[in-house]
Design a protein around this nucleic acid. Structure first.
Length: 424
RNA sequence: GGAGAGAUGUCCGAGUGGUCGAAGGAGACGGACUCGAAAUCCGUUGUACUGUUUUUACGGUACCGAGGGUUCGAAUCCCUCUCCCUCCGCCA
């Protein structure tokens, strides 16, 4: 959530930002509700003041008549307060739910655009893999090498689930360990997080657990959800606390399963492992001072690049355009790996994403630090993918396949794997 | 899962329905004493929201695990929930 105190003074900027992000939010209505809320709040507080004064007068001994009079007055006040409070409550609910939909401010360098096609490519590394044979996609490779079983998973669990088998199991574990080792060398505290989180944490991070378009599985009757990313549980880690300024930045890495409903996303770009209901991911998460977040955001991108360069996978980096930013993100960089089996001739496909969410999530989660003058301030929160295992597997299988149908393994993974090629 | 005990400020801890934002300690900060320090003494020491004010400041409301309720008035009484502790049972 943005700072609602700034709603009026920054109205023009906020309105422009909403337009750039291709969103439709009735700012005027929100401001009207804010005003109405403020009036009701003042009226309510005034009545409470009267109630407190009335009660205070009855502390001393009174004659019976006066006492009866004061009690009657108190009763009337009580009812008036109840009425006001009910009205205030109602306004507050609509006001807040609308205000929460206002997106974060946007970094001035972010390209303005509506769709992912408007994202700005800012870097490429390596060249798209060239083959002197016709390359297979990872679905074919997964089948021919007996590494991935979609059909059985569909029968057992439903569409977009999969069994990893044989070397693919070890590849998943190797990727996780490889990423965790790199993060540890960068000073991250390693964690394996819960795969379930409370709805209030989800909402604080900026996910909407409800509704048709929600990407979240909720667990009926518990107020909890399956997490779509460890960003949720890592952000929830310090929810509601005031952190020591000296301990910032706090850098955490979390390994978790990620569950996504992916309702209504079909088509060729969602075939195979690329878009699935469950996958494993190592996520980076940072709590820092407001002045540090831009630099740390770049550092997270560099770590992501280190990981993919170590895997020898060609990629490009994009600066995500305004229309493609999530509401909490102030700026977002994606790494798109070259995937030879994607599209007709191969295409880049997203494998990581790192966002600077500034104080947007911290405000909802109420995560602060204390300034030197004793005032508390919201921290800045950042997140980034170290490795989304399923997509990394897509990139490895497709880029390193050989003419004989085998797949070589990236050198950096060999110590973790114990083999350097998958062959049948 | 069953039985019992509990949750109060940074921490410990008191609190009879009105005099309680909350005793008393400890800690921290400021000051006195000291060459300096320790000890001692004096003082200050929560948060959020909100109103007036240029800031300073002053005022109001709320907050004693969370949410409801009773009452003119709740830290205090009642209900629900969460968490923690002890004992029993079960279990990877």
């Amino acid at each position: 959530m943005i700072d609602l105190k700034e709603l009026k003074e920054k109205r023009t900027i906020i309105g422009k930002n909403i337009k750039h992000r291709n969103m439709n939010i009735d700012l005027d209505e929100i401001i009207r509700l804010q005003h109405q809320r403020s009036e009701l709040l003042q009226e309510t507080e005034h009545l409470r003041k009267q109630r407190n004064e009335n009660a205070a007068m009855m502390k001393s001994k009174l004659d019976a008549d006066r006492r009866v009079l004061l009690i009657a007055e108190g009763k009337a006040l009580k009812e008036a307060i109840a009425v006001k409070e009910a009205a205030l409550n109602e306004i507050e609910i609509t006001y807040l739910s609308m205000a929460k939909s206002i997106p974060n401010y946007t970094h001035p360098e972010v390209p303005v655009g509506k769709l992912d096609a408007d994202n700005l490519q800012i870097k490429t590394w390596g060249n798209p893999t060239a083959f002197d044979f016709i390359p297979k996609d990872h679905v074919e490779l997964g089948q021919s090498l007996d590494l991935i079983d979609f059909d059985t998973a569909t029968r057992v669990s439903g569409a977009k689930f999969y069994y990893l088998k044989n070397e693919a199991v070890l590849l998943e574990l190797a990727l996780e360990r490889y990423a965790l080792d790199i993060l540890r060398s960068h000073g991250f505290t390693l964690t394996i997080t819960p795969d379930i989180a409370k709805e209030e944490i989800l909402e604080g991070i900026g996910f909407n657990p409800r509704g048709e378009e929600s990407n979240i599985y909720t667990i009926e009757g518990t107020g909890t959800c399956l997490v779509g990313t460890a960003e949720i549980t890592l952000g929830g880690y310090h929810a509601g606390s005031i952190l020591d300024k000296e301990q910032l930045p706090i850098k955490m890495a979390g390994l978790s399963h990620c569950f996504r409903r992916e309702a209504g996303s079909a088509g060729q770009f969602s075939k195979g492992l690329y878009r699935v209901h469950q996958f494993s991911k190592v996520e980076m998460f940072v709590y820092c001072l407001p002045g540090q977040s831009d630099i740390i955001h770049k550092e997270l991108l560099e770590i992501e690049e280190e990981i993919f360069q170590g895997l020898e996978i060609p990629y490009r980096v994009v600066d995500t355009c305004t229309g493609d930013l999530g509401a909490p993100a102030y700026r977002k960089f994606d790494i798109e790996a070259w995937m030879p089996g994607r599209g007709d001739q191969g295409e880049y496909g997203e494998v990581t994403s790192t966002s600077n969410c500034t104080d947007y999530q911290a405000r909802s989660l109420n995560i602060r630090y204390r300034e030197d003058d004793g005032k508390s301030q919201f921290v800045h929160l950042l997140n980034g993918t170290a490795v989304a295992v399923s997509r990394a597997i897509v990139a490895i299988l497709e880029n390193f396949q050989q003419q004989d149908g085998s797949v070589r393994m990236p050198k950096k993974l060999v110590p973790y794997l114990g083999f350097d090629r998958i062959i049948r």
